[in-house]
Amino acid sequence: MSMQPIVNVRDIVKELGQGAGKVRALKGVSMSLNPGELTLLMGPSGSGKTTLLSILGCILSPTEGSITIAGEDTEGLSPEGLADLRRRHVGFVFQSYNLFPTLNALENVRLALDVRGERYADTVIKAETALREVGLANRLRSFPGNMSGGEQQRVAVARALAIRPSVILADEPTAALDSENGHAVMELLSDIAKDESRAVLAVTHDPRTHAYADRIIRIEDGKIIDDERRLTSGDNVTRYDLKRKRKLHA
């Protein structure tokens, strides 16, 4: 992995809430996401995973620290500037899918292309392609209400994929799914991560997802405590490069 990282964050501090309820959710986090890798972000509840993912995806701005995404510095960008960055570079997958219940699968995916101002014909072609890639070619006109959780999450993955983003960020994408569907979604994400122009990060609790990871980052109490990378991909035994395993505790 000698390529440039796609997302790079340095010394991120994030405070959430106000006054007495103020919480330091991230306490100095530095990390990069590399293309062609599926990275898992693991940690106990409340450790700051979602907060970090929001910052990586330019939904939240850090209290301190810097982010570059696909070579672009986010320093000083307005909310509109950040939105622009998201629509060009970031695909999101959420725990509860966040599909539009009044739009069918094809329309849900087209929406992500439409907000980019793409032409109607292009949105249809690209959305159909993305839905085929996630195995839903026969569900184009189905509405979320008539789909299983697994199918809905695959529509959400297609929506993230359709814009061909530099990075896909998934917050607990399997948490609401049974194990079979969870595996299917993880397999999809790891396939998507094989594209050498794209990084994929998935927040997860689920140890069963380890098998799909190229790299696992552990976070606790707002700090990265562990960052391990699998030596060779494609092994039937999962091994990690323990020499590169770093303790990042201060």
Binding site: I59, L85, F94, N98, F100, L111, V115
Partner: peptide, 16 residues
């Protein structure tokens, strides 16, 4: 509102 927030997360401008 949740859908509008999703739109915003997908990077739509506020004008959209």
């Amino acid at each position: 509102l949740n859908e509008f927030a999703t739109l915003r997360a997908l990077g739509s401008s506020s004008g959209y």
